[in-house]
Design a protein around this nucleic acid. Sequence first.
DNA 1: GGAAGTAGGCACCTGAAGGTGCGTAACTCC
DNA 2: GGAGTTACGCACCTTCAGGTGCCTACTTCC
Lengths: 147, 147
Amino acid sequence: MTTTTAARQRAQAKVEYDAFLAQCPSRKLLDRIADKWVTLVLAALRSDGSHRFGADCASEPRPLRYSELSRLLAGVSQKMLTQTLRSLERDGLITRTVVPTVPVTVTYQLTDLGVSLHEVIRGLKGWAETHMDDVLANRATYDNRVG
Amino acid sequence: MTTTTAARQRAQAKVEYDAFLAQCPSRKLLDRIADKWVTLVLAALRSDGSHRFGADCASEPRPLRYSELSRLLAGVSQKMLTQTLRSLERDGLITRTVVPTVPVTVTYQLTDLGVSLHEVIRGLKGWAETHMDDVLANRATYDNRVG
DNA sequence: GGAAGTAGGCACCTGAAGGTGCGTAACTCC
DNA sequence: GGAGTTACGCACCTTCAGGTGCCTACTTCC
């Protein structure tokens, strides 16, 4: 066989590490919020939907309808909006309620868990707003030195 | 033409929203840390590299060598490690120093900016550790009800 | 003299995220 | 009677992050 002891040890470590990663709650959270539309939906539901873009803290969270969300997050495709909402509902971050009106009406609302998640996302937002300019400046400097 | 006024207005809103997203610092940050290895490298550099897996706060941040990182993050490919380190250096989150020893030695170290970013990531970790079980429980319940 | 460590570069490949387009079933407005 | 709205479902297509494998040039260990 061509595999030496050292190589096998590395392979073993790799398997263990992969298993650790698949288990890690932090990673699961990251995968969750890294989703393109997740944070935007959370922010929209956290706001009352009155301002269109960088919805933030907001006066009083109001349940929003599918079509309202669709209009608020103007760039989202119907497929992705539905998919995102389903997954958030599945995780207990939002609730979905169907009102049997003439054309059926569906409203979505943050749960307490969803609100608490939005809090930590606002933490990210804070860092981004104060430090992201530095990062971009560093990036430009680096590119000038190298490229 | 088949495009009505309402349709054109929606298209316009979509373009504006996409432009807003491309500009949004929060989104840039999310894209940055959503990278599979970024948070792991930051955590490894924040720790002194003594424990292998969920490196966290750590006693005293010590600069780590390429090979040390490679062994710590056992699952990472050489390509991805190099790529991740380059991008972090580009953003001014870590520094890269070459020591001209017999075989050349390269060490990586967090900058102040990198440390501050790691702080907000620890915020994420905190939420994940306290709430992720709830999320998984909700998910299981949902799947039982539906599937 | 072959294996292993030093820090990567380069080319190719795949899986999955996300986008596009089309259809629906019932109702309403003009 | 054609278009619009309501909340989606389904199939196809593109893109790219990330992985794999092979290369370097030098040195040291066994």
